[in-house]
């Protein structure tokens, strides 16, 4: 068995009102998207989410056997997030690390691999997903690209866990349409084609393969747009839990952040079907919420959605880019 020992979501304080984005180019928007502060980066945001998850867990940092991270926007080709996060958390130096990337499925890959690792080693593992989606002024998806992080601590067993992982399923279809170069905004391609031939078959197959007898009451979907995510949940009859209208699409973080939000906000005993769609296919995870998720310590995702400040349009562009420091290196 694999249980969710701790969960933590992180939503930056700052938001851009989508109306303010639309107003720049003529038009209207609904909802808002999360914008990182200038002093936040992938490692710091992953640290925020993971610290919350570990505090809620029964796992001490030095007992964590693996740290797997996912990101599709890490600006570094070589640098990594997992090892930096592991050090920050205070894990032992014999911790296994892995950086998953290259597809928005990376969060599910990290989660499922961590589950396998826990089963294989009988030791706890940490999964963190973090992204700051790049935008282009005037780009089609400028208003809905978000930022955030989510983290899970998995372990073999625990009394009153926050949730249990009941089943996983995957569908590697090889479908490719949307793509994105480093630091650039995405080339979305034909949205209808992606929905009908990419999302729908991959997500439904992944759910089919996640064998569970449970009735999926709630659904969580990660896909780079509201309609794509809705399509990903079409094959299950579940109430959708999403931060899309408050956070936007936060890349790999969306799966874990939304799953965290769902576990925090639905009743114990409920079953959640979560699906991550990305380049090459989709993955589904089914979890059942445990008593340990009732009134969790620390800030919930819901509380962070409320605790916010709006930034003007220029800051939304500026804060997503890495700042070019002048510094006084040798003073």
């Amino acid at each position: 068995m694999v249980v969710v020992d701790g969960i933590g979501g992180y939503v930056p304080l700052y938001r851009i009102d989508r109306d303010d984005v639309a107003a720049q180019h003529g038009g209207r928007g609904r909802g808002e998207s999360a914008v990182p502060a200038r002093d936040e980066n992938h490692v710091t945001m992953a640290s925020e989410a993971t610290t919350t998850a570990l505090e809620r867990s029964a796992t001490a940092a030095e007992d964590v056997a693996a740290v797997f991270t996912a990101s599709i926007t890490d600006p570094f080709a070589e640098h990594g997030i997992a090892a930096q996060l592991a050090y920050r958390l205070g894990t032992s130096t014999d911790v296994r690390t892995g950086d998953f990337q290259g597809s928005a499925r990376a969060a599910a890959d990290a989660l499922v691999t961590a589950g396998e690792y826990v089963r294989a080693t009988d030791q706890p593992a940490v999964v963190a997903a973090v992204d700051v989606m790049p935008v282009e002024s005037g780009g089609d998806d400028e208003a809905t690209m978000g930022a955030g992080a989510g983290a899970l601590v998995l372990r073999p067993d625990r009394d009153d866990p926050m949730a249990t992982v009941d089943a996983v399923g995957q569908a590697t279809t090889g479908f490719l349409e949307r793509h994105r170069e480093h630091g650039e905004s995405a080339t979305a391609g034909d949205a209808r084609f992606e929905r009908r031939h990419g999302v729908a078959p991959a997500a439904s197959t992944a759910f089919d393969r996640a064998e569970t007898d449970a009735d999926l009451e709630y659904g969580v979907a990660s896909a780079p747009g509201f309609r794509l995510a809705r399509t990903a949940l079409e094959s299950i009859d579940a109430e959708r839990v999403s931060t899309f209208n408050e956070v936007g699409y936060a890349g790999t973080a969306t799966l874990v952040l939304d799953l965290c939000h769902a576990i925090e906000s639905v009743d114990a005993g409920s079953t959640i079907g979560a699906v991550a769609y990305g380049q090459g296919g989709a993955d589904a995870v089914v979890v059942t919420v445990g008593d340990g998720a009732t009134d969790p310590d620390g800030l919930t995702v819901a509380a962070q959605l409320e605790a916010k400040e709006y930034v003007p349009y220029v800051k939304h562009l500026e804060y997503r880019e890495r700042y070019d420091y002048q510094g006084v290196p040798n003073a």
Partner: peptide, 11 residues
């Protein structure tokens, strides 16, 4: 935990 500056490009 926040970014204070960078060392080269490294935060």
């Amino acid at each position: 935990f926040r970014e204070l500056f960078d060392d080269g490009e490294r935060p």
